[in-house]
Amino acid sequence: MRLLALFTPLLLLVLSGCSSTDVVTDYNPRADFSRYERYIIADTSGADKTVSPFVVDNVKESLQRQLKAGLYTLADTPANANFLVRYYVAEAAETIDRSPRLGLGFGSFGGNFGIGTSVGVPLGKDKINRNIQIIIDLLNPADNKLTWRGSLVVELNDRDPKVNANTIERAVTEIWSQFPPA
């Protein structure tokens, strides 16, 4: 029983590090999000020139599906909009996926003392992952001031556009799930 009490906090710490969401949000606490019903996509939406137009289209379509699922409607004119939606897609820092490594460990343990060492031997070449950051902003239509922002960095697949479309759909869904703020 004492062993369980010792390892429970460690297990909780490890599991909290495995959280599924890396969405970053910020918002104006004075904004009244309950009044948001009709939206317009801001003309300033878009992406870095290095981002594929197909990726940008996937983000826009996914965002529109999320808005519709949230029962928000597209306003017929900007004057009838309660909020503006702006999305932006930017290249994020590339990450290096280190190849699998074979570990060889040596050590000794005696009494209350232990020592060990390990050597990693690469089994293949490194892969560079292409990442994008998806940013979704909500703005006040009267003054174009930011009221809410959500963003997430995701890894794209260089070989399969269908995988990218699914990745983007999940990312936009995850970002939108953080709105409205609690």
Rank of each mutant, 00 (worst) to 15 (best):
I41H: 10
A31V: 06
P53G: 12
G111V: 00
A31F: 08
V51A: 07
P180K: 14
D126T: 12
L138I: 12
G120K: 09
V119S: 08
G105A: 15
V121Y: 14
T117D: 14
W148P: 01
P29M: 03
A92F: 01
R35V: 06
L12I: 13
G105Y: 07
L12W: 09
T173Q: 14
F113L: 10
L4P: 00
V121T: 08
R2M: 09
S20L: 04
N82Q: 06
D158R: 10
F106C: 01
T8D: 04
L3P: 00
I115N: 10
T147E: 03
D137F: 13
I136C: 01
N157C: 05
R170W: 03
P100V: 04
T21G: 12
I40N: 05
V24W: 04
R130K: 09
N166K: 05
L123T: 05
F54T: 14
R30W: 07
A81G: 01
I41W: 08
A31E: 02
R130V: 11
V23C: 08
M1I: 08
A75Y: 00
V163D: 11
K162D: 10
N82T: 10
D26M: 10
F106H: 01
K60A: 07
I175G: 04
N80E: 14
D76A: 14
G120I: 01
K145N: 09
L67A: 13
G111W: 00
A79K: 14
L84H: 02
A47Q: 15
D160H: 08
A42G: 10
G120R: 13
M1Y: 02
E174H: 12
A165G: 02
A47M: 15
W176S: 11
Y36D: 07
G17T: 09
L104V: 15
D22E: 15
E174C: 07
G111Q: 01
T8V: 15
P122Y: 14
N28D: 15
T147P: 00
A93Y: 03
V14G: 08
G105W: 04
S62C: 05
N129G: 08
S34D: 14
L4C: 13
L123P: 03
D32M: 13
N164G: 00
E169P: 00
V24A: 04
G107F: 00
Y27M: 05
L152V: 08
